[in-house]
Computed example of a mutant assay.
Amino acid sequence: MEAIVSACAAEGWPARVAAVLSNRPDAEGLKFAAGHGVATGVVDHTLYDDRATFDAALAAAIDAFAPDLVVLAGFMRILTPGFVDKYAGRMLNIHPSLLPCFPGLHTHRQAIEAGVKVHGASVHFVTPELDHGPVIVQAALDVLPDDTPESLATRLLPCEHVIYPRAVRWFIEDRLQVHAGVVRVEPPESQLFTAFAAATEVQS
């Protein structure tokens, strides 16, 4: 979220971050957003009896800001199909694996235990099936022989900070075309970033 807010301001996107909402009142991101002049709000999931009631309250809070795009960032709640359908085609998420490999939790551990040599992150459209929406952009890096889940996550994070703002900007610029579940950027631009390319982007 911080990377997206910062990129929007630094790159002069033809858009604004309308609000940052959290289901946790103590989320650090709320302080960051408020400090950058972005409206904030909390929909505490512990105050609701079931997932559907919480999702309805969350949708009402989102709709109060009339956003064109909903971006999930560190949001660890599973959303109901009705909620996902409401924002179909305009809700993005980032997942720390090269989807469709390793959906769900503990992706870095899964990658190491599977013995894969390349790991990464994916930004995708959200669909009712968890971590299976059309992939917009991915970042990849080598899995080192001595990697732990923690070291892999640490090395991957700067890549995530590059690809998520990039995907959001593509959406804002109306450059994403989805055909038969495959996303293309028009005019064409690379939708894969290696760790080296990501590091170059971060340094620049």
Rank of each mutant, 00 (worst) to 15 (best):
R109N: 11
T127H: 04
S97Y: 03
H95M: 09
F125N: 02
H108M: 06
G120T: 08
K117W: 05
Y87C: 13
F125R: 00
F102Q: 08
F102C: 05
H119P: 11
G82Y: 05
L130N: 06
Q110H: 12
T107S: 14
V118N: 08
A88S: 15
F102E: 03
L105S: 12
K86A: 15
V135S: 08
A111K: 00
A121M: 07
E113G: 08
M91G: 07
P100G: 13
H95D: 07
P103Y: 06
S97N: 10
L92N: 00
H106P: 01
E129I: 10
D85S: 14
S122A: 09
P96I: 10
P103K: 05
L98R: 02
G104M: 08
P96S: 07
L98E: 07
R109A: 13
Y87M: 11
H106L: 09
G82A: 15
V135E: 10
T107M: 06
Q110N: 09
D85T: 14
V84Y: 04
P100Y: 06
P103H: 06
P128E: 07
T107P: 07
I94L: 14
I94N: 02
E113S: 12
H124E: 04
L99A: 08
Y87T: 07
H132N: 12
S122W: 02
D131A: 02
E129T: 13
L130E: 05
S122Y: 06
D131N: 04
L92V: 11
E113P: 05
I112T: 04
K86E: 14
G104F: 09
V116H: 02
L92P: 02
V116Q: 02
P100R: 04
G133M: 06
V118F: 06
A114M: 07
C101Q: 14
G89A: 09
H119C: 03
A88G: 13
R90L: 13
P96A: 11
H106N: 15
V123F: 04
G89M: 12
G82E: 15
C101L: 15
V116N: 07
H119E: 05
R109E: 14
P128W: 03
H119Q: 05
I94P: 04
A111W: 01
R109Q: 15
A88H: 11
L99M: 07
L98Q: 02
Y87W: 14
V126R: 00
H108V: 05
F83P: 08
H106S: 14
H106D: 15
G120L: 04
A88P: 11
L92K: 01
A88F: 09
M91C: 14
S122T: 15
T127Q: 07
A111E: 02
V126W: 01
G133P: 00
H119T: 10
K86N: 10
G104P: 13
G89V: 11
I112D: 00
P128K: 04
C101T: 14
N93Q: 10
